[in-house]
Amino acid sequence: MLDRKDKNRSGPSFNRRNFLKGSGAAVAATALATSQELAAAQNNNISKITSAEPTTITLNVNGKDYDVTVEPRVTLLEVLRDDLNFTGCKEVDDRGADGADTVLVDGKATLAGSRLAIECVGKTINTVESLRNGDQVDPVVSGFVKHDAMQCGFCTPGFVMATRAFLNEHPKASLEEIRHGLGGNICRCGTYAGITACAMELAQKGGA
């Protein structure tokens, strides 16, 4: 990234990170500065033209609403990782050529690093963290474990989300379709055989 350090991410009077620490809660809805902002956030609405300055927006991530104060140039990946601590999605290549930043936006596999956070206002965002519910994990996650589909693990969350999205849409996919659908994810360790085996097993069961 050329200029991550000088990005003005939060407003001058409000430090989100400290707020989150202090409150011990991830939901920061009470931190809204004015009633006007609150109304805008509740409507999941942003004005038609948003200035280049930091603006408070509401993002729905893994079923909860979060308020973040970011400039329009901040990507969804940066918000998820740096502001909201959903560090499952990874940045590998900032041109969107690797798929490690895959999350679901309204159910569709999306490269979080190639989408502005502000574009996602009013949408439902799901990260890999949403695939865990207490002790239960999504079959794609357990399938990755079963088929030893990871080595260093860095690409794994993006691969898991791409696999989840792919199987949601193609529950009975063939091996060839799986290889094509997941072609946007790169694993430098070369764990593709395990990943396709996992996806194939789930596809044979109807995509669960």
């Binding site: 038609k48 033209i49 948003t50 200035s51 280049a52 329009p72 140039r73």
Partner: peptide, 19 residues
């Protein structure tokens, strides 16, 4: 990225005005 404004039009005419 350099800073920029973000505009979200609802119609084609609005989009052209904003552009």
């Amino acid at each position: 990225m350099r800073p920029f404004e973000y505009a979200r039009p609802d119609t084609e005419a609005e989009a052209l005005e904003m552009l």
